[in-house]
Computed example of a mutant assay.
Amino acid sequence: MTEDVTVGRVGFVADIVIHRGPANFFDAEVLCRVADLGEQLSAADGVRIIVLSSAGKHFCAGADFGAGSLADDRDRAAAEIYEHGARLFDLPLPIVAAVQGAAVGGGLGLACAADFRVVSRASRFAANFTALGFHHGFGLSVTLPRIVGHQRALDMLVTAQRVDGTEARRTGLADRLVEPGEEHAGALALAEEIAGQAPLAVRAVKRTLRAELAAEVRAALAHELEEQRRLWRTEDSRIGIAAARTRAEPVFTGR
């Protein structure tokens, strides 16, 4: 059986790949493996940058809180997910995310944990949390406003609208726009471009620009999780999650 997370290497570039297609849902185990590999690669000789990608149709649909153990104990599962997700912000190596298909919910959070995002016009991003009846997570309170600005982030988080790759490139959510099917190749190309620069200087620039980010994300995660725990117990959350699983239109009650 293929491992859920694998790593390959081409020259100075390490490629971490999630294998949970087609939607590539993650759990704490997957994010722990990604963070472990990121820490190992950061300490390895000759690795200058990480590409984070997924096999299959979509980049990542986040955590499936309506299924399995995640549905049984969302509070514990989310806390473990965020514990390992926060470790990604401590990595000294730059990360380039190759975003094909959808980056939805926690998948958007994972994409925003990277330093760069490569997309095509077929890519799409959505902070779909309010459509599910609960608060956003994965540090998006910090990362999304940093990337697209406060007002655009508020719009995305409140409306749960989908943003395609072309719009993502226009607003700064994406750093490179390539042809559909070329997202991974485009991410590798950007990674190789960055890896060709002085590696100590690249790390120093990342450290300067993101020095406070890890601490800010951890503080945000604590608040986000508190709000999620509260809202998961509402009728609206039950309605939203059930509607998403059956592809129905939710009718919220405000309770």
Rank of each mutant, 00 (worst) to 15 (best):
R230C: 10
D175W: 05
E192C: 08
L190Q: 04
E167M: 11
F125P: 00
M1A: 15
R176I: 11
A174I: 03
F89S: 03
F252Q: 10
F89W: 05
I241D: 00
H223R: 15
R48F: 03
G105M: 04
A185C: 09
E39H: 11
D72T: 08
Q228S: 07
G11P: 07
G68L: 14
G186K: 01
D73N: 15
F59P: 01
E212L: 13
H223L: 15
A211N: 09
T234Q: 12
F129P: 00
D45A: 14
H184T: 09
P145M: 07
P94A: 06
H223N: 10
R76T: 12
A122H: 12
A97I: 04
G254F: 12
R146C: 04
R229P: 00
S53K: 08
A67E: 15
P92K: 07
A98I: 07
A195E: 02
C60F: 05
E224A: 04
E29A: 15
H184P: 07
H136K: 06
L154Q: 12
A174K: 03
P22N: 14
A126F: 00
H150T: 09
D75K: 13
D45L: 08
P22Y: 12
L70N: 11
G109P: 02
G101R: 02
W232H: 14
V202I: 14
P199W: 05
F138S: 01
G186T: 05
V47K: 01
P250A: 12
H135Q: 14
G109Q: 01
L108Q: 01
F134Q: 01
E182Q: 14
F129V: 01
T130I: 09
G38I: 03
V202S: 05
A63P: 01
V104F: 02
A243T: 08
H150N: 09
A43C: 09
L91P: 00
L132P: 00
R170T: 10
A79D: 13
I16A: 05
T246D: 14
A44W: 04
R124F: 11
V47N: 03
D36A: 12
V13F: 06
H223T: 13
F59N: 01
A122R: 12
A131C: 10
H136M: 08
H58M: 10
F116K: 03
A61R: 06
A174R: 02
D90M: 09
G107Y: 01
E193Y: 09
